[in-house]
């Protein structure tokens, strides 16, 4: 079992004929993901990497039922593409789009909630369970980063994920499922909403949260630990400890306003709840060893 995506999930790719769509569809299949159909308006009848292409999601799912939709769609068309997937009955959606208009992000989340669906992203590399399946863009072939194992990972940053995952692997561990919630201020799904899945996953021993300054997602993780919703060990690494106040550090969501969203505050909340917080990427692996023991001995 893995969190969010597994080999049994039938995945539809929206925007499959674009450069990214084509490139990553190949890699998703190579890893074992069951990509059943693709959608690009106007391109029905073509095929990409052996995957048949349809004009609309409705026409695609009529021939190939789908459990999940992977969007390689530009940000300004993302809301429409998400609504199209939801309308066709798909309840798991991943969007990598970087630059979704803020007001549309609100509408996307409201639409997902109203039908019990989960939208992951935007501004993310996606979701991967190494050795099994992925929706998104991960260099799973880099072995020192994407080794299968028993550590769950949730992250707001793609580049930092490679950095921290490499430290998890260097400490002798591997990754069960990795979920990129993305760097936007209003993501489709928030960290804490995945914690029950990791809690229930028998193949996850502990979770690493890669967070950063801004927003309240890390504080919500602390609340989930305090309330007993999440009971496995948790190690966090948070970027932006030294970021100057009022500067937006790259991601739309990475800004401290009015003294709220500081890494200091997040660290205190997580430690109070019993989580470990690493202040350097390397310490993530070391803390996991302290908590779980030497993985070679388990």
């Amino acid at each position: 079992m893995s969190v969010f995506i597994d080999r049994s999930d039938r995945v539809l790719v929206q925007g499959i004929t674009g450069g990214e769509g084509t490139f990553w569809t190949k890699h998703m299949r190579d890893l074992g993901t069951d990509v059943t159909a693709g959608v690009t308006p106007g391109k029905e009848g073509q095929s990409v990497e052996g995957v048949p292409v349809y004009h609309t999601v409705r026409r695609a799912v009529a021939e190939h039922p789908a459990d999940a939709a992977m969007l390689f769609v530009p940000p300004r068309f993302t809301k429409d593409a998400v609504l199209e997937a939801l309308d066709a009955g798909i309840r798991k959606v991943v969007t990598i789009a970087d630059g979704i208009p803020l007001h549309e992000a609100l509408e996307i989340r409201a639409a997902a909630r109203s039908c019990g669906a989960r939208v992951v992203g935007g501004n993310t590399s996606g979701v991967i369970s190494p050795g099994r399946a992925m929706m998104g863009m991960f260099p799973y072939w880099i072995e020192r980063v994407y080794r299968p194992g028993r550590i769950g990972v949730m992250t707001r940053s793609g580049s930092l994920t490679n950095e921290v995952a490499a430290m998890i692997v260097r400490a002798g561990f591997g990754v069960s499922s990795l979920l990129g919630v993305g760097g936007d201020s209003v993501p489709g799904t928030r960290f804490a909403e995945f914690l029950p899945d990791f809690q229930a996953d028998p193949e996850t021993d502990a979770v690493v949260v890669i967070g950063e300054l801004g927003g309240t997602m890390e504080e919500e993780v602390a609340e989930a630990i305090e309330s007993g919703t999440f009971r496995k060990p948790l190690v966090a690494f948070l970027g932006g400890r030294n970021a100057p106040k009022g500067k937006r550090m790259g991601h739309a969501g990475a800004i401290v306003t009015g003294g709220k969203g500081t890494v200091e505050g997040k660290t205190a909340a997580l430690r109070r709840a019993g989580a470990a917080v690493a202040d350097r990427p390397r310490l993530v692996g070391e803390l996991l060893r302290e908590i779980l023991g030497d993985p070679a001995q388990i």
């Binding site: 950095e163 932006g240 030294n242 550090m249 990475a254």
Partner: peptide, 16 residues
């Protein structure tokens, strides 16, 4: 640097 998250962390480490 490449990537918002990584660049932000490099900033942190320099200050440290």
């Amino acid at each position: 640097c490449a990537g918002a998250g990584l660049t932000t962390v490099v900033y942190d480490l320099i200050v440290d």
